[in-house]
Design a protein around this nucleic acid. Structure first.
Lengths: 152, 152
DNA sequence: ATGGATGCAAAGCCTTTGCAAGCTT
DNA sequence: AAGCTTGCAAAGGCTTTGCATCCAT
C-alpha cells in the first residue's frame, strides 16, 4: 500500500494507515462521520478533515467511489470488481446491493445509441425492505403523500 | 390548477402561480437557483424560500420529483408518464434523458427476487457527451486521475 | 531540506426553519 | 375570522479550505 501510494506521489503516515485500514474493514457505504467515529476509537487525535481528505484520496487513487443518494450524506463505496446497484430503503435508509452485470451491457448499448461515452453506471432502486414492511404491518389511514403535505 | 391544489388543502397565490408556471415552462432538471432567477425576472419581490417551498410543494402533490446526482445541487424533474434515466456529462454537467422502459421491467424482477418492494428507479450513466468530446479533441498527456491527484 | 500530511478553526454552500405580517377562502 | 403563504433573516448540516506545524522521504 505504501508502495502503491508512493508511485502516485503520496506518502504514508500513521493516520493514513489507520484510516485506510478502518475503511477497508468497514465494508460498504461508509460515510465520513462513520469512518471518523471508528478511527477515533483507535486514535482520538485524528482530525475530521484528515479522515475526509483521506477518503477523497482513496477515491482519487481508484480504491473507492462516492455514492450519493441525495439524502445529504456522501457515502463511500469500496471499489469492487463486480458492478452493483443499490436498493435504498426509504424507511431505514439502509443500502443493499444487487448485481447489475446483465443490465450494464444494455446501458452501454443505450449509451452508444445516444452518442454518449459512458464511464460509470449507477442504478438505484428505492422502496422498502422486508424488515421495514414487517415492522409496520398496520396500514395507515392517510396516504404518505397527504401526510407529508400537511407538514409546513 | 387552483382547484387541484384546493383539493389537497393548499391555496393559490400570485407568487405560487408564477412559480408553478415558470417551472413547467422551464422543462427538465431545474434547480432552485435557476427557477429563482427565472421567477425574479418577472417579479423581483419573490423570496428564495418561497421558490424553494413551492418546488417542494410541486413534488409533494406529485407533479415533479427530485433528481440528485450528488454534485451538491438538487434538481427537480417534472413528472412524466415515461420513466427515464439520465446521461450525466462529467464535463458540461448537462443532463440528457433516455428511455428506460425496457430496463425497468428487469429492475422490478430483480427487486422481487431480492424481497424488496420498489417504488422508484433511478439510472444514471456518467460519461461525456459528444459536444464535450469534440470540444477537446487534443488528448492530455496525463490521465485525469493523476491530474486530479495533484490537487491538495 | 522539501513537499506532502495533519489539526484546528473557519468559511462555503445549499437546504431548512422561525416568525411576524399579508393574503386566500 | 382562520389558516395557509410569504419574505427576510438566521440556523443547520455537511463539505471544503486556509494555515501554521509536523513528519515521511
Amino acid at each position: 500500500m505504501r508502495e502503491f501510494l508512493r508511485t502516485k506521489g503520496f506518502k504514508m503516515t500513521p493516520q493514513r494507515e489507520l484510516i485506510f485500514r478502518s475503511f477497508f474493514e468497514m465494508g460498504k457505504h461508509v460515510s465520513v462521520d462513520e469512518l471518523y467515529d471508528k478511527v477515533r476509537q483507535q486514535d482520538s487525535s485524528v482530525g475530521y478533515s484528515t479522515v475526509w481528505r483521506n477518503l477523497k484520496l482513496i477515491c482519487k487513487v481508484g480504491l473507492a467511489e462516492e455514492v450519493n443518494l441525495g439524502d445529504g450524506v456522501t457515502r463511500y463505496d469500496r471499489a469492487t470488481e463486480t458492478p452493483h446497484g443499490h436498493f435504498y430503503c426509504v424507511d431505514c435508509k439502509k443500502l443493499t446491493e444487487f448485481d447489475m452485470d446483465n443490465i450494464v451491457g444494455q446501458l452501454a448499448i443505450i449509451s452508444r445509441d445516444n452518442d454518449f461515452v459512458p464511464s460509470g453506471f449507477k442504478i438505484e432502486i428505492q422502496g422498502r425492505c422486508r424488515a421495514c414492511r414487517e415492522k409496520e404491518a398496520t396500514p395507515k389511514k392517510t396516504t404518505d403523500a397527504q401526510a407529508e403535505a400537511q407538514k409546513p
